[in-house]
Computed example of a mutant assay.
Amino acid sequence: MVIVGAGADGEKVARWLRQAPDRYEILGIFDDRTRGLNEVRPSAQYLGNLDDLLAFCRRSLPDIIILSIFSLSRERFLGIFQKIRVLPVDIDIALKKSDFDDENGASGPEFSIVLIEKQPLSGFDYVVKFLEDKIISILLLLFLSPIFALIAILIKCDSKGPIFFEQMRYGFNSNPIPVLKFRTMYTTMSDPTGVQKTVRDDPRVTRIGRYLRRYSLDELPQLWNVLAGQMSIVGPRAHVASMRVGEGIYEDVVKNYLLRHKLHPGITGLAQVKGFRGEIKAIKDARRRLSYDIFYINHWSLWLDLKIIIETVRIVLFKNEDTY
Score class of each variant (00 low, 15 high):
residue 271 A to T: 02
residue 293 D to W: 01
residue 256 N to T: 07
residue 5 G to C: 09
residue 222 Q to W: 08
residue 40 V to A: 05
residue 225 N to F: 05
residue 187 T to I: 04
residue 252 D to N: 15
residue 284 K to E: 13
residue 128 V to R: 07
residue 41 R to W: 06
residue 62 P to N: 11
residue 185 M to Y: 05
residue 229 G to W: 04
residue 302 L to N: 00
residue 137 S to G: 04
residue 37 L to H: 07
residue 159 S to T: 15
residue 283 I to E: 11
residue 279 E to P: 01
residue 172 F to W: 14
residue 296 Y to W: 00
residue 19 Q to P: 00
residue 49 N to P: 05
residue 152 A to E: 06
residue 286 A to T: 03
residue 312 T to I: 11
residue 251 E to I: 07
residue 281 K to A: 11
residue 98 S to F: 12
residue 11 E to S: 11
residue 93 I to T: 01
residue 136 I to V: 14
residue 104 N to G: 15
residue 72 L to G: 00
residue 32 D to R: 11
residue 3 I to G: 06
residue 79 G to M: 03
residue 218 D to K: 05
residue 244 R to N: 11
residue 268 T to P: 10
residue 209 G to Y: 08
residue 6 A to G: 09
residue 16 W to I: 00
residue 139 L to F: 15
residue 248 G to N: 12
residue 246 G to P: 04
residue 163 I to M: 02
residue 253 V to D: 04
residue 11 E to P: 06
residue 181 K to I: 09
residue 303 W to D: 06
residue 15 R to S: 11
residue 193 T to Q: 10
residue 103 E to L: 15
residue 316 V to T: 09
residue 20 A to E: 14
residue 212 L to C: 09
residue 171 G to S: 04
residue 53 L to N: 02
residue 119 Q to A: 15
residue 6 A to W: 04
residue 203 P to E: 01
residue 141 L to Y: 02
residue 297 I to H: 00
residue 34 T to Q: 12
residue 73 S to Y: 08
residue 11 E to H: 10
residue 196 Q to C: 09
residue 194 G to C: 08
residue 256 N to L: 09
residue 249 I to Y: 10
residue 189 M to D: 13
residue 56 F to D: 08
residue 86 V to L: 13
residue 7 G to R: 06
residue 235 G to I: 01
residue 143 F to W: 15
residue 299 H to E: 00
residue 41 R to P: 05
residue 42 P to F: 08
residue 67 L to Q: 01
residue 308 I to V: 12
residue 117 E to W: 11
residue 15 R to W: 02
residue 46 Y to G: 05
residue 220 L to I: 11
residue 224 W to P: 01
residue 12 K to S: 12
residue 233 I to T: 08
residue 114 V to S: 01
residue 248 G to K: 13
residue 219 E to A: 06
residue 57 C to A: 13
residue 78 L to E: 14
residue 240 V to A: 15
residue 37 L to M: 02
